[in-house]
Amino acid sequence: MAGAELTGQATIAGPWRLALRRLRRNRVALAAGASFAVLVAICTVGAPIWVALVAHHGPEYENLSGSISDGGRVVPVVADDGTPIGPGWRGAYLLGADANGRDLLVRVLYGGRTSLVIGLGSAALCLTLALSLALLAGYRRGITDTVIARGLDLIWSFPVYLLAVAIATVLAVNGVHLGPIEIPSDSTLIPIVVIAVVYVPYAARPLRGEVLALREREFVEAAIAHGAGAWRTMTRELLPNVLNTALVLLALIVANNILTEAALSYLGVGVALTTPSWGNIIEAGASSIVTAPMLTIAPGVMIVVAAVSLNVLGDGLRDALDPHGVVRVDR
């Protein structure tokens, strides 16, 4: 009998642990992951703390006629000609105010919540839909696959933003009324659903290809020969084999969706204007980009940090999860 002694934990490390080990050696990806985590933390936990301890007003608080003391002088939050106060070293209005006298930093922090919720939420929804369709198409093959694949092609054939704007416009006017499902037209669920749907082909098409290839592997046949039904074959045999791809896609899609949210909000069909989001803040500040550039720069920097860190993290995940990876970590 082949009875080599098993020694140490190293032998037992599964593919996920090996991937984690590879990821930990990739400093760039780790730094990217950390900066995204910091971003999430300051928007979720940091925002209310900042408001409670320093700013003393929320994101909706308007201060059109008030004034604050800035370095000993008393200055109006919004000047007579409508120019808001700029950034300065003080507690409230650290990054200045917007045209309505609202605290820009507080708005950027709270807007980050909206943008992140939309980015993460739509990515989760998008990937769930994509995985379901890919597994179904790849498992059933034949006519089911044809219908799903052509449906994805149909969505993909539209320019993403054009399709998103079209759907979002319809939904933003009417809201959603589908039997028991009622979504008011100003809900953040609408941009989540819209962004998720338009990017489903982006995730579903590569996943479907992988599932189709896996479907022909002998272990799938073996599982069926052992009595596995459709559900069991899809969830236990096929799904675990595409999770690594799905994870990489998740990071990239979150980044992409944060950008899409900003773009849609900028075009006025994203998040309702009453809710701050990075896209909304830029949209509102765009008209005064010369007199108050911070209104577009601050949320813009946040978007860039979020998108870049997630993209770099996604690349690192792809390297780490590649089973053939000798891994490019010697940087």
């Binding site: 599964g14 593919p15 592997r217 002998e218 272990f219 046949e221 073996a222 599982a223 020969a225 052992h226 236990r236 045999e237 675990p240 084999n241």
Partner: peptide
């Protein structure tokens, strides 16, 4: 059933 190729008949993950 016992399949022919033990290299490919087991789910690798």
């Amino acid at each position: 059933m016992v399949f022919q190729d033990p290299m490919t008949s087991l789910n690798p993950v």
